[in-house]
Simulated scan of single mutants.
Amino acid sequence: MVTDQQGYDDLIMYLTQHLSIFEKPGKVAPNAPRVITLIEDDIAEQIIALCQQHKGLDTDQRGEIVREVDGIVYDLQEVLSGVIHQPVTIEQHAFIDEFAGLVKNLFDSAIATLK
Rank of each mutant, 00 (worst) to 15 (best):
V2K: 01
D4G: 12
Q5V: 10
D10S: 11
L11D: 06
Q17R: 15
H18G: 06
L19T: 09
S20A: 15
S20Q: 14
E23S: 11
K24Y: 11
P25F: 12
A32G: 02
A32L: 01
V35L: 07
V35M: 04
T37M: 02
T37W: 03
T37Y: 04
I39R: 00
E40I: 06
E40R: 05
E40V: 08
D41S: 13
D42V: 04
A44N: 13
E45L: 11
E45K: 12
Q46M: 12
I47P: 06
I47A: 05
I48E: 14
I48T: 13
I48D: 10
A49I: 05
L50K: 09
C51E: 15
Q52D: 13
Q52K: 14
Q52N: 13
Q53I: 07
H54P: 01
K55Y: 15
K55V: 15
K55Q: 15
D60Y: 10
Q61A: 13
Q61P: 02
G63V: 08
G63F: 10
I65T: 06
V66R: 08
E68S: 01
V69E: 04
G71N: 06
V73H: 00
V73A: 00
D75N: 08
L76D: 03
Q77V: 09
Q77W: 05
S81T: 06
G82E: 11
I84A: 11
I84S: 10
H85G: 15
P87S: 12
V88F: 04
E91N: 10
Q92F: 06
I96G: 03
D97V: 09
E98S: 14
E98K: 09
E98R: 09
A100T: 02
G101E: 02
L102V: 01
V103F: 02
K104T: 05
L106E: 11
A110W: 07
A112H: 13
L114E: 14
K115S: 15
